[in-house]
Structures are given as structure tokens and as C-alpha cells.
Nucleic acid binder design. Structure first.
Lengths: 125, 125
DNA sequence: ATGCTAACTAAAATAGAGTATCACTAATGC
DNA sequence: GCATTAGTGATACTCTATTTTAGTTAGCAT
């Protein structure tokens, strides 16, 4: 039989990091979480596995204004994110909760929206 | 008398670029617009002048998710932006037009919001 | 248990955006 | 017009995020 991918402690730790954090993580945050499960895991491994988890659609990327991208477990319903200005952690806000009346020039077609709140998280107040 | 700053064709061209474009520009877009007024203007000059126009509060920076920052003439009322998925130009949407009911964990305090629409601009449809 | 090789670590290389340097140009005060 | 020096153009450099490389480890079929 032809082996195409292997189950490794490192990839398991990276998946576990996202599942237990329950919020979007940067590659660096992912590294720190995964290090608690697999000592010595390297940042290159984190990047490589984030890449393959994205390809598998187990993760999705979250682009943020003025910040490096975060990643979260895929398949959640449409929702938005909150950034703490003190600790810079990103949190999920379940549900969309946004209504808008775009004031756009003629001929523009809207296909998507992104919404971000910022402020202070409970731990930073 | 001590001269503190000089009026240059280049800085005028950069200001003119923002005024005529009437939408937020990246440094590179600014360069191309300004080149039509001052042949041979350099990207270093664009960065330098964007920097000084920010200090003068003539420009403000706009951070975008997954994109390099754009700059627009300062002092406009609170508004949001639209990104064309085809040409990647950013457009302004006058007025805020957003209502939201954040579904946040206990203890979080909201101090700001950012909102972006995406789709296709009139020229790209 | 062994062999094959995917996946790993550590380090170096790359990429892209922005900044610094320096010789030269040109705006301004006299 | 001339001297002064801020601003410019070209390019080298920095910084940070990410990718690649080379050598090593370990998952899995046999």
C-alpha cells in the first residue's frame, strides 16, 4: 500500500492547539500552544501543518486589518472577530449580527463583507 | 529666516494624486498617479512624502485585511471601504451605515469597529 | 524487525514592504 | 545671482513573516 500521509505527534498537537484555544491563532501562538504538548516542535512544522490543514479544509485563514493572519477550525457558521487592543488576541463572535446599507456608486456589486470589533477583552480590563 | 520645509513638484504631485484619485491609494498606486505629473519621481519620495503628510494629518492610513495599507485624505467623516476582487482597488463608501449587535463574552468592552465590503466595481463587471 | 520515505528540526534563504544612505538637484532667503 | 540646505533618485539595507534546504527521526507496510 502506498502511504500518502502520516499521523504525527506534531500535527496532532497543532490540531489540539486550535481545538483547545477555541479562538483564531497566529502561527506563533500555535507554536506556543503546541509546545506544551510536543516539546521542541519547530515553527517550520507549524507553518507546514497549517498549510496542509488549510488544504484539507480543516482550517481557514482569517485576514485581519494591520495584523498577520490567524487561522481557525473550518466549518463554523458565518461570524466575525474581536481584537483586544491590549493583548492583541483575536476572539470569535458567534453569529453575524451586522446590518448595513451600503452607500456605493452605481454599478458596484457586493458579494461579501468583513467586520471587526476592537476593544478590551475580559482578561485585560 | 530659517526654512523648515520646501514646496516641491513631487510633494504637490503626490497630494494631487490623492485628490484626483478620490479613493485610498497604496504607495505604489500613488507612484503611478504621481508619475503622470512628475516624470521620474521615485518610490522613496512617495514613501517619504506619505510619511510627512501623515505627520501633518493631511493623510490617514487605512489598514485592510490581507492587503498592504492604503492612504486617503484625512478629515473625512467616519466611513468604510469597498474592495474590488478583480482590480483590487479600494473605494470609499460615504457614511457609516452599519448597525451591529455584538455577541461577545462577558466582560468585553467594545471601543471601535471596522467594516469592509468586497465584490466588483463598476469598471470590472 | 526492517526498509522506505514522509515528516521533523534547525538553520539558512527568500519575499515583500518599508527605511536609510548618499551624491546630486533645486527651492528659498538674501 | 548666489549660497545654503531640504528634498530627491537610485539603490542598499532592514525587518519580519514565511519557505526551503539538508540532514535526521520516526510512522507504517511488509
Amino acid at each position: 500500500m502506498i502511504v500518502q500521509s502520516r499521523k504525527t505527534r506534531q500535527k496532532d498537537a497543532i490540531r489540539a492547539a486550535f481545538l483547545s484555544a477555541n479562538r483564531p491563532l497566529s502561527p506563533d501562538e500555535t507554536l506556543h500552544h503546541a509546545r506544551e504538548l510536543v516539546e521542541g516542535i519547530s515553527i517550520a512544522t507549524v507553518y507546514r501543518n497549517i498549510g496542509s490543514l488549510l488544504e484539507e479544509n480543516w482550517l481557514t485563514a482569517i485576514a485581519l486589518p494591520g495584523e498577520t493572519a490567524r487561522y481557525e477550525v473550518a466549518g463554523k457558521e458565518h461570524h466575525h472577530h474581536f481584537r483586544c487592543n491590549a493583548c492583541h488576541k483575536i476572539f470569535e463572535m458567534p453569529g453575524c449580527g451586522v446590518q448595513f446599507e451600503p452607500n456605493l456608486p452605481k454599478g458596484f456589486r457586493v458579494t461579501g463583507h468583513e467586520f471587526f470589533l476592537s476593544g478590551n477583552c475580559a482578561a485585560c480590563r
